[in-house]
Design a protein around this nucleic acid. Structure first.
Length: 428
RNA sequence: GGAGAGGUGGCUGAGUGGUCGAAGGCACCGGUUUCGAAAACCGGCAUCUGGGAAACUGGAUCGAGGGUUCAAAUCCCUCCCUCUCCGCCA
């Protein structure tokens, strides 16, 4: 949710954001009228209450009764205004950052840099679903019988590889030394405070998800009506509300958290897309980063998130490109979205493996997560969320490190987590 | 799931219809004392919000929402949460 004062002062910026993010049809003038009405009603209520307090003091039952009726009428009006205002307000998307490309859809995204050499194969490289099936480490068929489409069993070395990947990610995020190295390497000036590892809930109240501006579209969520709860679509959804209704101390910022959880997505509207392999599942594991920072540090914080993502992929020696997501393709609460696409030779394409969302104070405003500044004022804390690793890099490892005989070379950095082994081979 | 007890300021804890935004204690801030510190003593100290340059001042807030009443932290209803015991369970 945007700050109403900001909307009042910058209607043109807000209008542009609505248009560029393809959210037309929002009546901004109505919002401004309602905001004015709300303020007037609040003042009126305040005045009636003052008179009521006087009447109480005087034990004046007659005046008290009359004022109570008056109050009731104004309060009803006030609540109706408030309700309509908030319902309109939460439809306004966050304002894209100045460096976000303007574009209608993913065709407007801009590749900002590429890293790594695409591997050359003296044979036709296979896609990970074929590699995984042949090695007996990805089983989509049995999963389909048991759970339906878009589920898989990861077995044997694939299961171990995932644990290795996630553990490597965690170890990177909780090491101040490594973070320092990453920060220096990227030429950033941000805190090197390490991430706190968290095991968060993956079921949450729908209301809180709504305060994260992530409930809509509800079709994308697994919703348990009886309990009014939803499955998280990402650990972001329960890490973000970790400080709701709190006032944070400026000196405690940044706060950084990392959590690996299953993520659940209904993939409504993605029918027929990526039906093979592990790129688009209803349930997948993801190691997520979530940070809370001072408003002025929020953008630099996102740059750190991206630097970490790049470091992780570089350590795996996976070629990738960094993409600045344009206005028409970016998330509703995002101020700036940077994706990383990793090269998948079996599909002859870069595929999205990481995303990082700079949210600014957009979620914090509804979550009521604020920071007390040294001058005593309160501001919404700025939030960033970003993928460290999902399961998608596993697909990239399989495809990039494959051999003609179908075996896979395990990335060096993951070997210590896999008993020092160098290769994944078919079980004899 | 069953039974019971609770949710009050940064913490603790009193408060069962008006004099309560809320005693006392702890913590914190300032002062006296001291060479300095501790202790003791004195004073201050919730949050949000409208108006105002400020001094100051109006309003709201005792888990959330609704109700009774001229008046609610206090009475009634609904919901949420926490704790204890039992049941069940990893």
């Amino acid at each position: 949710m945007l700050d109403i004062a900001f909307i009042r002062e910058n209607p043109d910026i807000v209008r542009a954001a609505i248009k560029n993010k393809n959210r037309e049809g929002i009546d901004l003038d109505r919002i401004l009228v309602l905001a004015e009405e709300r303020k007037n009603n609040a003042n009126e209520i305040s005045e009636i209450n003052r008179q009521r307090n006087v009447a109480q003091e005087a034990r004046d039952g007659e005046a008290g009764k009359r004022l109570k009726e008056e109050l009731k009428a104004v309060e009803e009006k006030h609540q109706a205004t408030e309700k309509e205002l908030v319902s309109l307000l939460i439809k306004i998307p966050n304002i894209p950052s100045a460096d976000t490309p303007i574009g209608p859809d993913e065709s407007g995204n801009v590749v900002i840099r590429q890293w790594g050499e695409k591997p050359q194969f003296p044979f036709a490289p296979k896609a990970h679903w074929d590699l995984g099936k042949n090695l007996g480490i990805i089983d989509g068929e049995k999963a389909a019988e048991v759970s339906g489409a878009r589920f898989v069993y990861l077995k044997g070395d694939m299961a171990l590889l995932e644990m290795a990947l996630m553990r490597f990610g965690f170890d990177t995020l909780i090491s101040e030394e490594t973070l320092k190295k990453i920060i220096d390497g990227a030429g950033l000036t941000v805190s090197s405070k390490p991430f706190t590892p968290v095991i968060p809930p993956i079921l949450m109240r729908s209301q809180v998800m709504n305060r994260m501006a992530r409930l809509d579209p509800i079709d994308e969520r697994y919703y348990f009506e009886k309990d009014d709860m939803v499955f998280v679509g990402s650990a972001e959804h329960t890490l973000g509300p970790l400080h709701m209704d709190e006032i944070l101390k400026e000196e405690d910022l940044p706060l950084r958290y990392a959590a690996m959880t299953p993520a659940f997505r209904r993939e409504a509207g993605a029918a027929g897309k990526d039906t093979r392999g592990i790129l688009r599942l209803h349930q997948f594991d993801k190691l997520e980063m979530e940070t809370f920072s001072k408003p002025e540090d929020g953008l630099a914080e996102q740059n750190l998130m991206v630097a970490i993502q790049e470091y992780l992929l570089q350590q795996l020696k996976l070629p990738y490109q960094v993409v600045s997501i344009c206005t028409g393709d970016m998330g509703f609460p995002d101020q700036r979205q940077i994706d990383i696409e990793t090269w998948m030779p079996g599909q002859d394409a870069y595929r999205e493996t990481n995303t990082s969302d700079y949210i600014g104070g957009f979620q914090a405003r509804r979550l009521n997560s604020r920071v007390r500044r040294t001058d005593g004022t309160l501001e919404p804390v700025h939030m960033n969320d970003a993928t460290a690793f999902s399961q998608r890099p596993l697909a990239a490892i399989l495809e990039n490190n494959q051999h003609e005989d179908g075996t896979i070379t395990i990335p060096e950095v993951l070997r210590p987590y896999m008993g020092g082994r160098e290769k994944i081979e078919a079980k004899k």
